[in-house]
Design a protein around this nucleic acid. Structure first.
Lengths: 125, 125
DNA sequence: CGGTATCCTAACGGATACTG
DNA sequence: CAGTATCCGTTAGGATACCG
């Protein structure tokens, strides 16, 4: 058993794996983009309008990030003009469900969060 | 009803509020610090050891951020030498519970995430 | 239509040294 | 013990313009 890490594909999520997912969905536009894709598959310019005022560059960056983690799919239909559809994967849909519970937490604890921020600013800077 | 926003303290979490929480817990050391505080109240140098190799500066930054959002408490006992205890608030404990479900998701979907990353790197850079 | 390229700034995060 | 101060490299994010 000297080669422990040879078949390291087993589900044993490290702290870094959790962190990479948290910062992925913590990216500025990620939640909104996932929200739109949870509602329906969307095309690039469609997202550009729905997630306004996002810029083309940031939409690309966000989509590529989510895609690279397997949270969304990118499907190119070889038509003229070109047509690209983005959608959530099953994993992405599940993860977005968890984000909804974070949103509920935020909703419930908004007063507490805001007063904590006010208190902190009052005490410090 | 012209002054809709006058008592805007009602729980109606905006998209920015969700995002601020997601990026708060997405900070590099936040999950580990919250995890240690979920296990028990801790003191500064205790955390410094437990969350190694975090630096004093980053621990301070992380703690101040969590405190300013009302997720943790900071209690100073006026003893000699000074003694400061950090702990999760009730809201912080609940939020950490949600982070656990994200951790479960990560655990389940680790293979998918890793193969998506490999595929993405293979296709692009 | 679905993106890139370039440039820029501000914020994040780390190393090291010092303090009430 | 519980932090601050200073410096500095890296990354996130935005503005603008252009391309297959």
């Amino acid at each position: 058993m000297a080669e422990v890490a040879e078949f390291a594909a087993e589900p044993e999520a490290s702290c870094d794996d959790l962190r990479s997912i948290l910062s992925r969905v913590g990216e500025k536009w990620a939640p909104q983009v996932m929200g739109e894709l949870d509602a329906a598959p969307r095309r690039f310019n469609e997202l550009l309008r729905l997630v306004a005022p996002i810029t083309p560059r940031m939409l690309t960056v966000t989509l590529r990030g989510l895609e690279s983690d397997g949270l969304i799919t990118r499907t190119v239909h070889p038509t003229v003009p070109p047509q690209v559809e983005y959608g959530l994967t099953r994993a992405g849909r599940k993860l977005f469900g968890i984000l909804r519970t974070v949103a509920s937490w935020t909703d419930e604890n908004l007063p507490a969060v805001h007063s904590a921020r006010a208190a902190y600013r009052a005490a410090n800077g």
